[in-house]
């Protein structure tokens, strides 16, 4: 039952965006977000430009707008924070609909909302068009330490197994009439967490035993990763390049 959860963001497909090697997409998204983040917030007109660029990528990748927008709900807590800023920030005040608001707070809220939304949008597109495993191999190609990639792979492989164990323990609790109501239930839930840790750690040891039993000494056998052609790189980097083209006038104006 946990399986839906790990692959929630990925939208299988065969669009040109899907086919690009993962590491080129990672670099492209990171560069794009960097450009967005370093755009001055006063250049209000630049942000719709970025949004249009992302919409273009989504269209090429055939990611439906509704899908992308629903997945962007993760930023809701920060929308709340951003909406608070005009009320708490210092400095000059202005009056909007009879309410005293801070000018710098309004700018701050706009800044966080615009940049945060564009960042989440870019990440959602990346996750929707790339298999998780490819993302990890892409990170490895980008010189992320292999050990870290291994740890992340194990977490992915066993995340579902452990989430399932947790779900079974919950069913076992509830089958015996337990209802979690208020902090009085914490001791029981914490024992669940403790038991889960013991099970998980022991499974980790068994996995390790199974690995050393087959001659593992700390490094994974090399798996062939796909390298990117010049054309693929240019296709991927078209996004941040276009964003930079929007950004430069924003800096100079």
């Amino acid at each position: 039952m946990g399986s839906g959860h790990v692959h929630r963001l990925h939208l299988p497909g065969h669009s040109p965006v899907h086919r690009l090697p993962a590491h080129t997409k990672l670099v492209a998204v990171l560069a794009f977000v960097l450009v967005v983040v370093s755009t001055p917030r006063e250049a209000v007109w630049a942000y719709p430009g970025y949004a249009l660029l992302l919409a273009g990528v989504a269209r090429t990748a055939r990611v439906p707008a509704g899908f992308a927008l629903r997945r962007m709900a993760v930023e809701v807590p920060f929308v709340a924070f951003a909406l608070l800023l005009p009320f708490v920030a210092q400095g000059a005040r202005t009056e909007v609909l009879g309410v005293q608001l801070s000018v710098s707070g309004l700018w701050g809220a706009w800044n966080i909302l615009a940049k945060g939304t564009l960042g989440v949008g870019a990440s959602v597109l990346l996750a929707a068009t790339t298999e998780l495993r490819d993302l990890l191999l892409g990170l490895q190609r980008l010189r992320m330490p292999p050990l870290l990639v291994q740890i992340a792979s194990f977490m992915l492989r066993y995340g579902d197994v452990i989430a399932d164990e947790l779900a079974r323990m919950r069913i076992a609790r509830e089958s015996r009439g337990f209802r979690a109501r208020g902090p009085r239930a914490w001791a029981v839930l914490a024992r669940t967490a403790g038991a889960l840790f013991i099970r998980t750690y022991e499974r980790g040891e068994r996995v390790h035993l199974a690995m050393v039993s087959r001659g593992y000494t700390g490094t994974m056998p090399v798996t062939a990763g796909s390298s990117a052609t010049r054309a693929q790189w240019s296709a991927a980097l078209a996004l941040p390049a276009a964003a930079l083209a929007v950004c430069l006038p924003a800096w100079t104006l």
């Binding site: 194990f154 996995v207 035993l209 039993s213």
Partner: peptide
């Protein structure tokens, strides 16, 4: 370890690759 092949009880422990 090359000569002794152990098949563990829970295949989930043994099958850790993608």
């Amino acid at each position: 370890r090359q000569r002794v092949g152990i098949v563990f009880q829970d295949p989930d422990d043994q099958l850790f690759m993608p």
